[in-house]
Structure formats: C-alpha cells, structure tokens
Amino acid sequence: MPITVSMTVNGKAVTGEIEPRTLLVQFIRENLKLTGTHVGCDTSQCGACVVHIDGTSVKSCTTLAVQVDGADVHTIESLADGDTLHPMQEAFRENHGLQCGFCTPGMVMSAVDLVKENPDPSEQEIREWLEGNLCRCTGYHNIVKSIKAGAAAMRG
C-alpha cells in the first residue's frame, strides 16, 4: 500500500507517494530526478550512494525513504553554489581526485562529513574514513590528496 513521505531535500520541501520498499536512493533518483547520487554495488559496500541525513553521511541504498520521513536530506547537488564549486569539489578537480568519476559523488559527500567531524584529518584518518567508499579505478592516492586539500580549504 503506497504511503506518503515528506522530507526536505537540498533545502526544498518534497513529498511523494511511494511503496514502503522504495529505497532512499530510488526516491532521490527516480522521483526527484536528482541523479548525482549513484547506485554502485546496491549492497551497502561501495558508498557511491552516500548522502547526508540530518547532517551525517549514510548509504541511501541501505535506507528506506519512509525511514527518513521528516528528515533533512542533502545530496551532491546541494554542494555547489551555482557555478561555484564547494571547496571539496574544487579540491577533487584541482588534484584530479577521480578517474572515471562514478564513485566521486559518494567520495565527496563522505569527505565533507569527515571534515565536519575532524577538520584536519591525517592521511591515515582519511584512508580509514574511506572504508565504506570504493573506487574501482583504484584512484585512492589522488582522492586522499583531494580530501586533504579540501579539508584545508574548508578550514579557510
């Protein structure tokens, strides 16, 4: 039986009639047409689907949309301000922190959450934090470099 969910996504109030089994990532991509959030493994291992729920990073492929009814959700689309990239996005661009780019939205969302908790993470702390984000191009070296630079830029 379809049920109604309402939440704030990227600052905008949204509502949808969905089946309870709808995953948050499906709701974001298919109902809201925000396709920056990716589905990689669909088994909560790769982290391409990371979004922020009430300020913390979670895997939207392992969360039901109904579980976040009333929550404040932010996706990768919320980071840039028009044509001005978020400092973390800019750092990924500057440091070539991507190869094919598929994992990048999740990497960036995960990195932004890390810096909120730990404004000046060491390389080791960054690598540990990326436990749940996989890059199948194995471009970790530049991703870690990007996050280090992005953290510095976010500190200002």
Binding site: S44, G47, S57, S110, D113
Partner: peptide, 9 residues
C-alpha cells in the same frame, strides 16, 4: 564496526 556510514545508522 563496518564503515562510518554503517555506524551512523
């Protein structure tokens, strides 16, 4: 346990 995102939920 798991990874940061799993630990958040």
């Amino acid at each position: 346990i798991g990874d940061p995102q799993v630990r958040h939920r």
